[in-house]
């Protein structure tokens, strides 16, 4: 379980990265890693600490696909939709999976178990199709393999 927002914990995390040049992205990654997403409080705190405006931090958070401003499911399945995976039928596999879960891209199962997102290339293009469940990579995922993978995440 990701811990709830905690200002002092967040401040601690931010402080770790302050010695870096251009610490914004490392800080945002670390906050998201800790709390699962980047809430408005995080944005305010980062702005205050880095002495930038909260508009700027929001601009950064909202720009990158990796950063989320709302919590996602307990597990995240990122399915590659780039060309190499498409050449091996990834789109059909993915739409069948989404259909069976009753989700759209980016959706989360009602029980909060799984969020399915798209990703554009995991660098496993010679062993397509591929996907990443949380931090683990998977390649040569046929329809069954993908379904099984999605089922693994409990």
């Amino acid at each position: 379980m990701t811990p709830l927002w905690d200002a002092s914990r967040a401040a601690e995390i931010i402080a770790q990265y302050l010695p870096l040049e251009g610490p914004m992205l490392p800080i945002l990654h670390a906050l998201q890693e800790e709390f699962g997403y980047i809430n408005d409080d995080s944005i305010r705190l980062v702005a205050q600490t880095l002495n930038v405006s909260r508009a700027e931090v929001y601009g950064v958070v909202s720009f990158y696909h990796d950063f989320r401003q709302a919590p996602h499911g307990r597990h995240v399945l990122k399915i590659c939709r780039a060309e190499a995976c498409q050449s091996m039928g990834s789109e059909a596999n993915a739409s069948k999976l989404l259909q069976s879960l009753g989700l759209d891209w980016g959706g989360t199962t009602p029980d909060g178990r799984l969020t399915v997102e798209s990703v554009y290339c995991l660098g496993l293009c010679a062993c397509a199709p591929s996907a990443m469940l949380d931090h683990d990579l998977h390649a040569r995922l046929d329809e069954q393999g993908l379904k099984a993978l999605a089922g693994e995440a409990v």
């Binding site: 508009a55 700027e56 601009g59 720009f63």
Partner: peptide, 17 residues
């Protein structure tokens, strides 16, 4: 006080958060 929020076609001028 202003930024562009989002990216691509969804880019939008945004004050603050």
């Amino acid at each position: 006080a202003l930024t562009i929020g989002g990216s691509g076609f969804n880019s939008k001028v945004s004050p603050g958060i």
